[in-house]
Structure formats: C-alpha cells, structure tokens
Amino acid sequence: MKINIILSLSLFLFITSCTTAEKEAEKTAVKPTPVQETNLVQFTAEQKKIAGIITGMPEKRGMSSVLNVNGLVDVPPENVFSISVPLGGYIRKTSLIPGMAVRKGAVLATIEDQQYVQLQQDYLMAKNKLKFAEADYIRQKGLNATKATSDKLFQQTESDFNQQKIMVKSLGEQLQLIGLNPLSLNAANISRRIQIYSPIDGHVTKVNVNTGKYVNATDVLFELINPKKLHVNLTVLENDAANLREGQKIVCTTNRSPDKKYLATIHLISPSIGDDRSMSVHCDLENYGKELLPGTYLNAAVKLNHASVTAVPDEAVVKWENKFYVFTDEGNHQYKMLSVDPGILSEGFTEIKSTLPAKNIVLKNAYAILMKMKNGGEEGE
C-alpha cells in the first residue's frame, strides 16, 4: 500500500515539473518578427525634398529605335573629274598639290610636244588648200553649167572640195580637244605648248605628275572634286538593311567633332550583298561645311519604326542586379519597387513594354530611392 502511494506521488511530481518547464519555455521563447515587404521604402517629407523626388504619370510618346552604323563621306561620280591630256606630252609647269582649291578655267598644267606643232601646221595647210579647192569648185561649177567642161571633171572638183572641208573640220576638232581655238590660229601664233584648264570650281585630290614627266593620253594627271554635293556611303549589315527605306533621315557625327550633327537622307540602298554580308547605303548630305572632306569617317544613327509607346524619363528607370525597375508612389511618401521591361531609348526617354499600374511613378531621382532601400533604409524613421 505504501509503495502504491509513493509511485502515485512520484508520477504527479514528474507531470507537474514537465508542465511547469513547458510554460517557462513558452515565456522565454523569442517571438518571430512579422515579415515585411522588401520592395517598399518609406521617406519622410524632409527626405523626399532633399532627394528631389518628383512623381507623375507615364506618357505616350512617338519614339523610334535607332540603328547605329558607320560610313565615309563620299562624292557622287558626276562630281569627280579625272584630268588627262588627249595627245600626251611633257609636263613643263604645274604647281598643284592635293587639297588646293582651284577655280573654273584656272591653268592646271602646261604641256609641250612636237606633235602639237605638227597638228597646228596640218590644220593651217588644210585650211589654205580648202580655199583653193573652194575657188576651183566654184569655177568648175560655172563652166559645167555652160557645158564648157565635162561632168566628170566637175564631179572630181566637187569631191576634192568636200574632202578638204572634212579635213579642216577634223583637224579643227583635234585642236579644240587640246584646248586650242582653230578660229584664232594663224602662222604667227603656232606654239609647241598647250595648257590644261580646270573644268570646275573645286579641290585637287590627286596629283600624279611632276615637272618634266612625259604623260600619255591614257594617263590621269590630276583628280578634282566638286564639294558642293557630298554624300555618305554607309556600311550596313544584311539583316539591318532590311529595316531601311529610301527617304529615311539619318544623323551623322564625326569623331573629331561629336557635338556637330550632320543631317542626311537615304536615297539608294545597294541591291547587292558583299562577302562580309554587308550592303552599301548611299545618303545625301543636307548640311555641311568646308570642314567635312571626302573620306571623313562618320558615325550615323538611323531612326526606325516610329510608334506611340508608353515612356518615362530615363532617370525614372533604375538597374539592380541586371534587372530594371521603376518606383510607384504608394502615398504618404512611400514608394514601391516594380520590375519592368524597357524598350526603345530616345531623346531622354525610355519605352516601358510592361503594363504599369494606374499610379504616379517616380520620374526623377529614382536612384535615391534605390540607394535608401538597398542601404537598409526601408523601415523608415
């Protein structure tokens, strides 16, 4: 009996001690902190003012994507002149150097050769013979009209006269080809020298001769360009060229003066593709000065697919861990971080492809909110 009482008492004490221990454990246990939303950040009115945060609604804007390509300033073929001498000769005088400006009609070079003397002699002698042939033709024509001479003799005289006219005309054209005026040529002004004149107002780009050098009729002595009409030759990859159209506007800059913008319009897209899978796109320059020379390297931006899209200022979009975000205004100086998908960047604005809630968003100084959030300031003060 005593043993049963002792066992019952021991069991009661054990249960009581366990219950007491559990209650003490519940009292001393650390209660979990409520989970807070980590994409919210709280500012005070003063903090917002100091940070310069400005909010507003996104807007609809007409925006275009931009294709960046490279190219060179070029001159249309009709504005490039290769200067040769039709009959060849020795260069006796020239003072041209590449880059020099020349006026139309200016003397580019003086050339001499004995064949010029021979050509002038042949012309003057042919001209004198023509006078005699003409007089003989008139005389024979009169005699033939009265049957004082045979028709055969008259026809021979007429043939000689016509042949001599052809000879004079042919030699006269050859003289004009080398820059001599046959109408002013006479025995007193025969010369062994001729002069080469500039056909345009322009600039010298190539000089292939020097004093004393003999040149042939096929040699190019000088190359001139007329800089009044320049164009841009762009190199565009095959896939990108499919987005281009004639009439599209482009903006060009040089590495030397990146702030100076030159406008151009696409006027021809080459239908052939090179070995490097690129195409040539020719554009007319609209504004340029003497500082833009043929061969200048250009950076060009081509605007594509103009469309009305939802856009925000560039500084409204922040980047964190390779993702892009904006902040929505939740009221009472509280802002919520929202992941977005950006699109076209143009003229200080960024397209937002994602659907935005019908709330104001932070348009300016969004990075100040990001810094506060990531530096542990989201609990507010």
Results as ranks from 00 to 15, higher is better:
Ala45Asp: 02
Tyr262Gln: 04
Gln47Asn: 09
Lys31Leu: 06
Ser272Asn: 11
Lys60Leu: 05
Phe12Met: 08
Asn305Thr: 07
Gln155Ala: 14
Pro86Trp: 03
Ile194Tyr: 06
Asn255Ser: 07
Thr33Pro: 01
Glu59Tyr: 02
His282Lys: 15
Pro32Trp: 00
Lys290His: 10
Thr355Leu: 08
Gln163Glu: 13
Ile361Gln: 03
Ser184Phe: 12
Ile111Tyr: 04
Thr254Ser: 12
Gly274Gln: 13
Gln47Tyr: 06
Leu304Cys: 12
Gly348Val: 06
Val312Phe: 15
Arg256Tyr: 13
Arg61His: 12
Lys152Asn: 12
Arg192Thr: 07
Met279Gln: 15
Ala106Met: 14
Ser184Ala: 14
Leu67Pro: 06
Gln155Asn: 13
Ile369Ser: 03
Glu24Tyr: 12
Leu185Tyr: 13
Lys141Val: 00
Leu293Glu: 06
Leu244Ala: 03
Pro227Asn: 05
Pro227Ile: 04
Ala242Leu: 15
Val362Tyr: 00
Lys147Tyr: 08
Pro58Ile: 09
Phe132Asn: 01
Arg103Ile: 03
Asn216Arg: 08
Ala366Trp: 03
Asn186Trp: 11
Lys2Cys: 03
Ser257Ile: 02
Phe43Glu: 01
Ile97Pro: 07
Gln121Asn: 12
Gly376Tyr: 01
Val281Asp: 09
Asn68Asp: 06
Ala300Phe: 04
Met279Asp: 10
Gln42Ser: 09
Thr44Tyr: 00
Val69Leu: 07
Gly142Thr: 01
Ser64Thr: 00
Gly348Tyr: 11
Asp113Pro: 03
Glu351Tyr: 10
Asp201Tyr: 11
Lys336Arg: 15
Asp74Leu: 00
Ser272Gln: 15
Glu378Thr: 01
Thr19Met: 14
Ala241Pro: 10
Ser84Ala: 09
Ile15His: 05
Thr265Asn: 05
Met63Ser: 11
Ile361Glu: 01
Asn287Phe: 12
Gln163Met: 14
Asn189Thr: 02
Asn322Phe: 12
Leu230Trp: 11
Glu59Ala: 12
Lys374Met: 14
Thr310Glu: 14
Val220Gly: 04
Pro294Trp: 06
Leu363Arg: 00
Ile266Trp: 09
Ile5Ala: 15
Leu108Arg: 07
His231Gln: 12
Glu59Gln: 09
Leu345Tyr: 14
Tyr116Glu: 02
Asn299His: 12
Leu185His: 13
Glu286Pro: 01
Ile269Pro: 03
Thr149Leu: 08
Gln164Tyr: 10
Asn299Phe: 09
Ala45Lys: 00
Leu224Pro: 02
Tyr297Phe: 11
Ala51Asn: 10
Asp219Ala: 10
Asp201Lys: 11
